[in-house]
Amino acid sequence: MKVIFLKDVKGMGKKGEIKNVADGYANNFLFKQGLAIEATPANLKALE
């Protein structure tokens, strides 16, 4: 799943980066902790 990092995550990515991560990792950790959001077309447009 493609995500946009909202904060730096050690060993994974930096704020503003777009990366592919495992679905479970994104849903169970990154999204719940507020560290990333899904890289949807609307979210990608908002990032620009």
Rank of each mutant, 00 (worst) to 15 (best):
G34E: 08
Q33I: 09
I4E: 01
N43L: 07
F5S: 00
F31I: 12
T40Y: 04
G16N: 09
I18E: 04
K2C: 15
L47F: 13
G13Y: 07
A36I: 06
G34N: 09
Q33Y: 15
N28Y: 12
E17C: 07
N43K: 04
M1K: 09
L30E: 00
A22C: 11
F5R: 00
M1P: 05
G24M: 12
N20D: 13
E48Y: 12
A36T: 01
E17R: 03
N20R: 13
E48N: 12
V9W: 06
P41I: 10
K15Y: 06
K2W: 10
K10A: 13
K14E: 07
G34P: 01
M12T: 07
I4G: 00
E48D: 13
E48P: 07
K15Q: 09
K10M: 13
L6T: 08
L30H: 00
K2L: 15
A26F: 13
V21A: 02
I18P: 01
L35G: 02
L47W: 14
A22T: 13
G13A: 15
K14V: 11
L35M: 07
V9I: 09
A46D: 09
V9F: 04
D23Q: 15
G11M: 06
D8Y: 07
V21F: 07
M1F: 10
L6S: 02
G11E: 06
G24A: 14
K2D: 09
D23G: 11
G13H: 05
K10E: 13
Q33F: 15
N20Y: 15
L6V: 08
N27K: 15
E17W: 05
K14R: 13
G24P: 11
V9Y: 04
A39F: 08
E38P: 12
I37N: 02
I37Y: 04
K2A: 10
K2H: 09
A39W: 11
M1W: 07
A36Y: 02
V3D: 00
E48Q: 13
K19H: 10
A26D: 05
T40F: 03
A22E: 14
D23N: 14
K14Y: 14
A26P: 04
N28Q: 14
V21K: 01
N28D: 09
L47N: 07
G24Q: 13
V21N: 00
K2E: 08
L44P: 02
L6M: 09
G34T: 03
M1R: 09
I4W: 02
V3H: 00
L47Y: 14
M1H: 02
E17H: 04
G13R: 00
K14C: 13
F31W: 03
D23C: 15
G16M: 06
A46Y: 11
I37G: 01
T40W: 03
D8C: 07
F31S: 02
K19E: 04
K15W: 06
Q33M: 15
G16F: 10
G11P: 04
T40M: 03
L30W: 03
K10H: 13
F5Q: 00
K7W: 10
E17P: 00
A22R: 13
N43T: 06
K10N: 10
E38Q: 10
Q33C: 15
K10D: 14
F5M: 06
E38Y: 06
A39T: 02
I4M: 08
L30K: 01
V3F: 01
I18Q: 06
A46E: 12
L6I: 11
V3S: 01
G34F: 09
I4V: 11
K32F: 07
G16R: 03
N27Y: 15
L44G: 02
A39V: 06
F31D: 01
A46Q: 12
A39I: 03
I37C: 07
K45N: 10
N20C: 15
F5W: 01
Q33E: 10
G24V: 13
K32R: 13
L47C: 10
G34D: 04
G13V: 03
E38G: 04
V3A: 01
I4F: 06
V3T: 01
G13Q: 00
K32L: 10
F5T: 00
K45W: 07
K14D: 06
G16C: 08
K15N: 04
E38R: 10
A42L: 09
M12L: 11
M12S: 07
D23A: 15
P41L: 12
G11R: 05
K19Y: 08
E48A: 14
Y25G: 05
N27S: 11
N20F: 15
N43M: 08
T40E: 03
L44M: 12
K2M: 14
I37L: 11
G16D: 06
F29V: 13
D23E: 14
E17G: 04
K10I: 12
K19V: 12
I4L: 10
Q33H: 15
Y25D: 08
M12K: 08
A22S: 14
M1G: 03
F29K: 06
G24C: 12
E38I: 06
A39M: 05
Q33A: 10
M12N: 05
M1A: 03
Y25E: 09
F29W: 14
M12P: 00
K10T: 13
P41M: 11
K19N: 03
D8I: 04
I18M: 07
L44W: 03
G24R: 12
D8M: 03
G16L: 05
L6P: 00
A36G: 03
N43V: 10
K45H: 09
K32S: 10
A36K: 00
L44A: 03
K19M: 12
E38F: 05
A36Q: 00
K19A: 10
G34S: 07
V9G: 01
E48F: 12
K19S: 07
Q33T: 10
L44I: 15
P41V: 11
K15T: 08
A42Q: 13
A36P: 00
E38H: 08
I37A: 05
Y25Q: 07
M12I: 13
G13W: 10
A42D: 13
F5K: 00
L44Q: 06
L35W: 13
Y25N: 05
T40K: 02
M1C: 11
M1S: 05
T40G: 03
Q33S: 11
P41K: 09
E38N: 04
K32W: 09
L35C: 05
L6R: 02
V3Q: 00
L6C: 09
N28R: 13
A42T: 08
G24K: 12
Q33R: 15
K15H: 05
L30N: 00
Y25I: 14
M12V: 15
G16V: 00
A36N: 00
L47T: 07
G16K: 02
Q33L: 15
I37T: 06
K10Q: 13
G24I: 14
V9R: 02
M12C: 14
G24E: 14
K15E: 07
I37R: 05
K7G: 08
L6W: 01
E38D: 04
G16Y: 10
I4R: 02
A39D: 02
P41Q: 11
K7H: 12
F5D: 00
F29H: 09
A26M: 08
G11W: 06
K32T: 11
F5G: 01
K7I: 11
A36F: 02
D23H: 15
V9Q: 02
A39K: 01
V21I: 09
A46F: 12
L47M: 12
P41R: 08
G34V: 03
I18D: 02
V3M: 02
K14M: 12
L35V: 06
I37S: 03
P41N: 08
K14H: 11
A36R: 01
A22D: 14
E17A: 05
L47P: 04
G13L: 01
V9S: 01
G34L: 08
A36L: 03
D8T: 10
K14S: 10
A22M: 11
L30C: 01
L30P: 00
D8W: 07
E17Q: 11
A42C: 12
T40N: 08
V21G: 01
P41G: 09
A26Y: 13
A36H: 00
K2R: 14
N20G: 07
E17F: 04
A39S: 04
A22Y: 11
G16H: 08
N27H: 14
V3Y: 01
N27V: 15
V21R: 00
A36S: 01
G11I: 01
A22N: 13
N28K: 12
A36W: 02
L35H: 03
M12Q: 10
L35I: 07
P41A: 12
D23S: 15
A46R: 14
T40C: 04
V3K: 00
N27R: 15
K19L: 09
D8K: 05
L6F: 03
K14Q: 11
N27Q: 15
F31M: 06
T40A: 04
E48V: 13
A26E: 06
K14W: 10
K2V: 08
L44R: 06
P41Y: 11
I4T: 01
I18W: 04
V21P: 00
N27M: 15
K45Q: 12
F31C: 04
G24H: 15
L44C: 09
V21W: 03
N20K: 12
A42P: 05
Q33G: 07
F31G: 01
Y25S: 08
K2S: 11
G13T: 01
K15M: 10
T40I: 05
P41D: 11
G34A: 07
D8H: 08
F31H: 02
K19P: 00
D23W: 15
Y25W: 10
K2T: 10
